[in-house]
Every structure is written in C-alpha cells, then in structure tokens.
Write a protein that binds this DNA or RNA. Structure first.
Lengths: 127, 127
DNA sequence: TAGGCCGGTTACCGCAACGTGACCGGTTAC
DNA sequence: GTAACCGGTCACGTTGCGGTAACCGGCCTA
C-alpha cells in the first residue's frame, strides 16, 4: 500500500480494506479501554459499557479472542468466573485508541460545529 | 471522557460514541488519502478507489463536506468540472490515518495469523 | 438525430450489524 | 421447592450501510 509518487490506488488485497481504521465493531475500542488497567469479568464489562447487551458483548469478545486481542480465562469456581485480559497484541491497540481520542479532543468540536452550520442552511439555490 | 482512577464508564454523551475511531464510513479514510497530494475531480476519485459506485462516493463526499472535511468547488466550464479538496480540518485526519496504517504495518500480520490459528482448531472440548 | 461525457439523483434491494427477550445448567441461599 | 447469580446461547426483529440499475440535463461530436 505504498503510494507511487501520487496515486494510492487501493486494491482489494490492501490491508486498509481488511482493517479500515474502524477497530473492529462498535464496542471493540471501548473494551480495549476497559481492559487497560486490569483484567475484568464479563459482568464487569457489561456494567462499564452500560448499554451493551449480553449477546453483542459476547460477539465482540469472541471476535477479539479470535484475533488474538484478548484472552479468556475460565475459573472453575462457584459462582463460575470468567476473566478477559488484553494480550500484547491487544495492548498495541491502545496507542491507536489514544491517537483517536486525542484527535477527537482537538478537532471534534470543529467538526460538529461545521455540521451544525451546514444543517442550518441546507438550500444552496432556491431556484 | 477522563477516566476516574480506574473505570472509563462510557456515557452516551461521550465523544467516543459520536466518533468511535472508525473515521466515518467505509471510504472516508481512503478519500482522505486520495486527496492528500492535491485536489481531485469526482471521476478521478472513482478511478483511484476502484470499486466504489457513484452513489456511495457521492454520499461519502456529501457527508465529509457536511462535516467540514472536504470542500467542493464547481467550475462552470465544459465539460462541467467539480473538484474536491481537503480542508484544514480534513488534513488533521491524515495523522490519524497514518497512525492506523503504521499500526497495520506493525501488527496486522500477528492479528491475521492469530485468526488463522484460531480457525484451524474450532473445537475446545469435544466432551 | 443520435450518442457520449460529466456529475450526479432516484428507486430499490440484500445483508450484516445491532438489539430484545426467552431460556439454560450448575450452585448456593431463602 | 424455588429463587437468584453467572456467563452465556438461541430465535427473532429491525435498522442502515453499501451496492445495482435506471435515469437526468447540458454540452459536444458524428
């Protein structure tokens, strides 16, 4: 995916189409942040994320496990306990999430005000 | 969205839910890259992006214009010419896209091989 | 008169992501 | 007995993004 002088030209084999910046699905980035400090249990994650359903959180964690971003440990206690922790690979995502957050801190206000301004005058040529 | 000691706790007002790292829709990041070097015409973008339809590209560019990421200039020539260029705000996205690309360069292989390995043995306990 | 090019618009459609609600098996508490 | 807790699974419904196909109007060419 090096650009040749001028034109990027994305082919289907380009990594960007496999990973188009969007860091997995909707909740992946937040899960990464929740696991930054320490491993967490399933229900703990649900609480931290607030509005996520069990199914969607399960799907997200399964996908992250598949991709080697988190590891899942089952403790055969009672009540049963399951812990998720970031792998080394998962930790590498933290830089990226931080970069995104710092971009948002610096520029999101501009973006949102541009959007509001654009929405207030949606008539370019009344004709 | 500062974390208090330990728990991030995302509420709906959190910027992350308005901008969850994913840089707009599917093509936004690639459009940003295509416009890095210089402004481009509509059909030029279609060519560079390869497989995008006119409708989807139009939608993407309209959304980016709305958010103040690109500006659209119509030249009343013949044949009609329309140029899109990155705004200052749009240029700020370049750092983020670069960060994502460099993450991919460094870690995508690990992710993909973890995925392959996981897919080759999908039976945890056959009972 | 027909067709092509440019930069779209409109109508429609399929699919995957997202979400809801019910249920489950084992264990402990009431 | 039954109820709750944990960490899910299953069936189902909805939404919206991405994509296809047809068309448009103005200008130019054949």
């Amino acid at each position: 995916m090096e650009k040749t002088a001028d034109a990027p030209t994305f082919d289907p084999a380009c990594p960007m189409s496999a990973f188009p910046v969007q860091i997995g699905d909707k909740w992946t980035a937040m899960v990464v942040l929740c696991l930054e400090a320490r491993p967490r249990r399933f229900s703990e994650l649900r609480q931290l994320l607030g509005s996520v359903s069990a199914k969607v959180l399960t799907d997200t964690l399964r996908a992250m496990e598949r991709d080697g971003l988190v590891s899942r440990s089952v403790f055969d206690e009672n009540p049963p306990r399951v812990e998720y922790r970031l792998t080394a690979l998962g930790r590498t995502l933290l830089q990226l999430v931080d970069a995104a957050r710092s971009w948002a801190r610096d520029n999101l206000d501009d973006l949102l005000s541009a959007r509001r301004q654009h929405d207030d005058m949606p008539l370019p040529s009344p004709r």
